[in-house]
Simulated assay, not measured.
Amino acid sequence: MSTSSSAPADRRTFVRTALDLGDAVLRPWSRADAGSEALLDALVTAAADPAIALWNPMAAADRDAAGAWVEARDGGWERGTAASFAIVDAIDGTLLGCVNLRWVDRADGLAMIGYWLLPTARGRGLATRGVAAVTSWGFATADARRIEIAHAVGNEASCRVADRCGYLPEGVLRESFRFGDGEYHDEHLHARLAGDPEPEKP
Rank of each mutant, 00 (worst) to 15 (best):
I87A: 15
C165Q: 05
T94L: 10
E78V: 15
R124V: 06
L54D: 03
D108W: 10
P119E: 02
D74F: 08
S158E: 02
F177T: 11
T81K: 08
R145F: 10
R164S: 10
V153Q: 05
W103I: 00
A83L: 05
F139V: 03
Y167K: 00
H188G: 07
V104C: 11
T94K: 15
A46V: 14
R106A: 10
D64R: 13
F85N: 06
S176A: 15
A82S: 07
R63H: 01
S84I: 05
Y184S: 14
G76Y: 00
P169C: 06
R129V: 04
V161D: 05
E175M: 14
W103Q: 00
Y184Q: 11
A132P: 07
W55V: 00
G97K: 12
L173W: 13
R73V: 11
Y115K: 05
H190T: 07
G75Y: 02
V99D: 06
R102L: 08
D49P: 10
G97H: 10
G166K: 03
A133G: 03
V131S: 01
A82G: 04
R63G: 08
C98K: 07
A46D: 15
G125Y: 02
P169T: 03
A132F: 08
R102D: 06
L189P: 10
M58C: 12
D62Q: 07
V99W: 02
V70D: 03
E175P: 09
D92Q: 02
S158T: 06
T141A: 15
G171F: 05
P169H: 09
C159K: 14
L96K: 12
V153R: 09
D108M: 15
S176R: 14
G109K: 07
L95T: 14
S158A: 01
T128Q: 05
R79D: 12
F85H: 12
L43Q: 12
A152D: 06
A82L: 05
V99R: 03
H188T: 15
E71Q: 11
R129C: 08
V131D: 01
R164Q: 05
A142M: 06
G93Q: 03
F139L: 03
T120C: 12
V104E: 07
E170K: 09
F177H: 14
A157L: 03
A65K: 02
V88R: 08
A157T: 07
D181S: 13
A191I: 00
V161M: 07
D49Y: 10
W116C: 05
A51V: 14
D74Y: 06
E183L: 15
A132Q: 11
V153T: 13
N155V: 00
G130W: 03
R106P: 05
A82T: 04
R102M: 07
V161H: 07
V70C: 03
V134P: 01
V70S: 00
A144C: 15
R129K: 12
H188L: 14
P57E: 01
A83V: 00
D163F: 11
A53Y: 04
N56R: 10
D143T: 05
V70L: 05
E170G: 09
G154W: 06
